[in-house]
Each structure stands twice: as structure tokens, then as C-alpha cells.
């Protein structure tokens, strides 16, 4: 990982976008990094498009403003691709990870991505099969880790186990773990 990376997450209210950003931050923290994760607050409605920002760096992060030129863009809901400009301000060499039922070739053909590296993963299907409901936020993390090496898979899984144990049953935790592993394998 580079010394400093800025991430923008696009999701819809209720999809667990903040939870995903928090889980990634905690895993990076365990890896000795400095972190920030914060949502852009507006009227809180389930289904409304939301943005969440993260920063991960080797040095202290003092800047306190939204991420405008992300190096990583994560799209948790495929319908957002037609609703918001997910590439706004994204760096030319940015990595984009999209939750979609389409293949990566179909995704790449769907719009102009410039020189950005584009990855596709069907996080809805994976979460439905592993967790029992559509909850793309944890599988997308597995895809992110594979696409960016931002933290190691082991670090992410260990942290998910520890932090989810405060809130969820063993069955749900294991479902999330297998969803992350599957997304890690299946992302293209």
C-alpha cells in the first residue's frame, strides 16, 4: 500500500456503508496505520444515495474535509452508476470496485472509465448465499482487499471476528467471513 490513500464509498442508506468503512479502518488500525472514516450526513433515509469517506496513511492525518480526489472508489449499489457520478474527481490511476451482477467486461463497456482499474463483484448474490440476505458491505471488503492490498485478508477477517462479536451471533459472523472470502476469490 502507498503511504496515504483516500477512499470514497457510494452506497444507499441501510446498506451498511459506514459499517464497511469502519471495518476497513479498524483492520488498517490493527496494521499500525492512521485512519479516518466519516459519512457525509444529510437527511437520513433508507435507500437515499450516501457517500462515506476514508483516509488511511502511514502518518498522522490532520486534514478534516471531504475526499475530493479519491484513489479508491467503492460502489456498493449498482443502481448508483446511473444516478450519481461515481468518478467525480477520482484520480486517473484510481481503482474502482463495483458491486454488480454484470461481468467485468460488461461493466467496463458500460461507460468510459479512463485509465482507472475497474473491478466487478456480485456482492448481492454472495451475501444472499452466505449471510441469507442482501448485505453487500462485507463482501465488497473482500473484493477491495484483493483489488488494492490495502490491508491483508487475514487482518480484515481477524478484525471482523473481534468487532462483530460485540453485536452479532456466531452464525452471522461466519456468514460474513465466508462472504468476504468468496468475494476475494470471485472479484474480477
Amino acid at each position: 500500500m502507498k503511504d496515504f490513500v483516500e477512499i470514497r464509498w457510494h452506497g444507499r442508506g441501510g446498506q451498511g456503508t459506514v459499517t464497511a468503512a469502519k471495518a476497513l479502518a479498524e483492520a488498517a488500525l490493527t496494521g499500525g496505520k492512521f485512519i479516518q472514516a466519516f459519512p457525509e450526513y444529510g437527511p437520513e433515509r433508507a435507500g437515499a444515495p450516501i457517500r462515506v469517506y476514508s483516509r488511511i496513511g502511514a502518518n498522522e492525518i490532520t486534514i478534516h474535509c471531504p475526499v475530493r480526489t479519491p484513489g479508491i472508489v467503492v460502489v456498493l449499489d449498482p443502481t448508483l452508476l446511473g444516478a450519481v457520478d461515481v468518478l467525480e474527481g477520482a484520480k486517473d490511476e484510481a481503482t474502482v470496485i463495483v458491486n454488480t451482477a454484470h461481468s467485468v467486461d460488461e461493466l467496463k463497456a458500460s461507460r468510459d472509465w479512463g485509465n482507472r482499474k475497474v473491478f466487478a463483484v456480485d456482492a448481492n448474490k454472495i451475501s444472499l448465499e452466505c449471510i441469507g440476505r442482501v448485505m453487500p458491505n462485507t463482501p465488497i471488503l473482500g473484493a477491495m482487499v484483493k483489488a488494492t492490498n490495502i490491508v491483508t485478508l487475514e487482518m480484515l477477517l481477524d478484525d471482523i471476528r473481534i468487532n462483530f462479536a460485540k453485536k452479532f451471533s456466531e452464525k452471522i459472523i461466519e456468514g460474513n467471513i465466508s462472504a468476504i472470502k468468496r468475494a476475494y476469490e470471485e472479484v474480477r
Binding site: 479516518q36 472514516a37 466519516f38 478534516h64
Partner: peptide, 12 residues
Amino acid sequence: MDGFIISHSIEK
């Protein structure tokens, strides 16, 4: 402390 910018942001 600053509302949202600090109150709702996760930091190390």
C-alpha cells in the same frame, strides 16, 4: 468539539 466533523468521524 466540532459537530459531525469530529463528533461523527472515526479516527485513530
